[in-house]
Simulated scan of single mutants.
Amino acid sequence: MIARTALGDRDAFAMLYEATSSKLHAICVSVLKDRPEAEETLQEVYIKIWQGAGRYASNGLSPMTWLITIARNRAIDRLRARTSRPVTFPSDEAETLPSSEPGPEAATIRTQERKLLDNCLAELGKDQAEAVRAIYLEGQTYADLAARLDKPINTVRSWLRRSLMRLKDCVSQ
């Protein structure tokens, strides 16, 4: 589908969108923690995919890995841009905005899920858990983490992949 998209095939692009949009949207939401902003970012991601499909080269990476990388990097870019510019509201407008805090039921579910994740991260060991948090929760790049740990980037990626597989097993139990 990516190769056909590179040739300007709109049907292939539509099929690619249908097959991957939910996964890429979930990645954007997990990084940005804001659904409307994640939806805007997802649109930007697919524009980038449409424009850059010709640059995709199957170099051992799966097409989905390439798409996820684009989505994750774009979401991190937006997150960094968001944190670099403060948002200000006129004082009277801020009082009329609805609360974005979750309700009691959602808060309870989130707390239970957080405890489950924390327990599973604790099973990984301190270094692996810190690496997973740095990459997937704080938005740090693989290169930054590899430099901080003084390890080759591919070693860090393999380490994170094994950690994620262990987390998946733990959470699904």
Rank of each mutant, 00 (worst) to 15 (best):
M1K: 08
I2D: 03
A3D: 08
T5M: 10
D9N: 07
R10E: 09
R10P: 07
R10C: 07
D11L: 11
D11A: 15
D11H: 14
A12H: 02
A12T: 03
F13T: 09
A14F: 12
M15K: 11
M15E: 11
A19E: 13
A19L: 13
A19Y: 04
S21I: 05
S21H: 13
S22I: 08
L24E: 00
H25I: 06
H25L: 14
A26F: 03
A26C: 02
I27V: 03
I27E: 02
C28I: 01
V31R: 11
L32G: 13
D34R: 14
A38Q: 03
E39I: 09
E39G: 04
E40I: 11
E40S: 11
T41P: 08
E44P: 09
Y46Q: 03
K48V: 11
I49R: 08
I49C: 07
I49S: 06
W50V: 06
R55G: 09
R55F: 09
A57D: 07
N59G: 14
N59E: 14
S62H: 01
P63G: 02
P63Q: 04
P63Y: 02
T65P: 00
W66N: 02
L67F: 01
T69W: 04
I70A: 02
I70R: 03
A71H: 02
R72D: 00
N73Y: 07
N73C: 04
I76E: 01
I76Y: 02
R78E: 12
L79T: 00
L79I: 05
R82A: 09
T83L: 12
R85I: 15
P86Q: 05
F89N: 00
S91W: 06
A94G: 02
A94I: 11
A94N: 03
A94V: 08
T96Q: 03
T96R: 04
L97F: 06
L97D: 05
P98F: 08
P98L: 10
E101L: 15
P102Q: 06
G103R: 10
G103P: 14
E105D: 12
A106F: 08
T108H: 13
R110F: 07
T111A: 13
T111E: 07
T111F: 09
Q112P: 13
R114N: 14
R114L: 13
K115Y: 10
K115G: 10
D118Y: 13
D118P: 10
A122C: 14
A122T: 12
E123G: 14
K126N: 06
D127S: 15
A129Q: 01
V132Y: 05
V132P: 06
Y136K: 07
L137G: 06
L137C: 11
L137T: 13
G139P: 12
G139H: 05
Q140N: 14
Q140C: 15
Y142T: 07
A143Q: 15
A143M: 15
L145N: 10
A147Y: 04
K151C: 10
N154H: 06
T155N: 00
W159Q: 03
W159I: 05
L160S: 01
R161Y: 12
R162P: 06
R162C: 10
M165V: 07
M165C: 06
R166S: 05
L167K: 00
K168A: 02
C170G: 00
C170T: 01
V171D: 01
S172V: 01
S172Y: 00
Q173V: 01
